[in-house]
Amino acid sequence: MTSPPNVHIEIDGRPAAGLDPAVIPVLQGAYGHFTAMQVRDRRTRGLALHLERLDHGTRELFGTDLDGDRVRSLVRHALDGSGRADAGVRVYVYGAAAGGGAPTVVVTVREPQSMPETPRSMMPVPFLRPVPHIKHAGGVGQPYYGRAAALAGFDDALLTGPGGEVAEGHIANVAFWDGTSLVRPDAPALRGITMTLLERLLPHERREVRLADLGRYPAAVLMNSQGLAPVHRIGTAEFAVDGALMSRLREAYGTVPWDEI
């Protein structure tokens, strides 16, 4: 296993070039989960939430816990190996290699990333992620529909249920502004770290949102670990780009502390 250009990969603290052959079947199976974080000066927002996500996912998928100190140590080691203090980092967790032992942890380090702040368009697609509360690896649905949206001239795909229930973007959470609160759709979806952090700072609620009802909301926003962006169109439904709202959201998110890894 070799690293793509500009991406540093470590598997259980060892560079991917020195991969133990016993781990190859585990990685090829793609049965695992991950978290994605932006790191600045070797710090990240919501570190405890990332570690909690990884531990809960490991317990559910593999029946064992994942020590947060081990994860932090592996991320620090990968940052050292990459020579980066600012980076986009992913931590993947797979099963143990042949012979048992602790789960296999893969850390990837690449250049830092930020979501473009330009207004986004989203194409509704008839797909919901399986086991949506876990940020799982593998699967063709999300990249398939993300590509389909791009080919159709949209920036992102919007995952929806059979009755038009809005769930999430294909790689981000979506929320709607009703004039007083952020509304998170209650269809099955991953609860993102950025969404969770913002909900601690702003009025919010969770309720059913359907494609047919999008006209009720004056504004919408897309968010993930890379940041926030306004949504100006979902299918044929158009939204105002509320500069004051986006400033308020970004200001609130800007107060979230950066935790030392």
Rank of each mutant, 00 (worst) to 15 (best):
residue 77 H to S: 14
residue 104 T to G: 05
residue 121 S to G: 07
residue 219 A to S: 12
residue 24 I to D: 08
residue 77 H to L: 14
residue 181 S to M: 11
residue 124 P to S: 08
residue 72 R to Y: 05
residue 257 P to V: 01
residue 208 E to P: 14
residue 15 P to E: 05
residue 83 G to P: 07
residue 225 S to Q: 03
residue 84 R to N: 10
residue 246 M to C: 03
residue 100 G to F: 11
residue 236 T to V: 14
residue 133 H to W: 14
residue 152 A to E: 07
residue 254 G to C: 13
residue 90 R to C: 04
residue 112 P to W: 01
residue 226 Q to S: 14
residue 55 D to W: 06
residue 8 H to C: 04
residue 258 W to N: 07
residue 23 V to D: 00
residue 162 P to E: 13
residue 132 P to S: 11
residue 162 P to M: 15
residue 242 D to E: 10
residue 250 R to L: 07
residue 126 P to F: 05
residue 132 P to M: 02
residue 14 R to Q: 09
residue 15 P to C: 04
residue 73 S to C: 12
residue 110 R to F: 11
residue 92 Y to M: 11
residue 174 V to R: 01
residue 201 L to H: 10
residue 116 P to H: 08
residue 12 D to P: 10
residue 235 G to S: 12
residue 236 T to P: 02
residue 67 D to G: 12
residue 22 A to L: 15
residue 34 F to P: 04
residue 2 T to Q: 14
residue 62 F to C: 08
residue 160 T to W: 07
residue 53 R to V: 05
residue 174 V to I: 15
residue 207 R to D: 00
residue 246 M to P: 03
residue 258 W to P: 07
residue 141 G to Q: 11
residue 110 R to G: 11
residue 161 G to Y: 09
residue 98 A to P: 00
residue 50 H to M: 08
residue 242 D to F: 00
residue 96 A to Y: 04
residue 46 G to V: 01
residue 43 R to H: 10
residue 207 R to C: 04
residue 44 T to C: 10
residue 159 L to A: 01
residue 48 A to N: 11
residue 235 G to H: 00
residue 228 L to A: 06
residue 128 L to W: 10
residue 173 N to E: 02
residue 34 F to N: 00
residue 40 R to S: 15
residue 179 G to Q: 06
residue 194 T to A: 12
residue 154 F to D: 01
residue 140 V to F: 05
residue 102 A to I: 00
residue 206 R to D: 13
residue 50 H to Q: 15
residue 84 R to D: 11
residue 219 A to M: 06
residue 99 G to L: 10
residue 4 P to T: 11
residue 56 H to N: 14
residue 123 M to E: 01
residue 235 G to T: 06
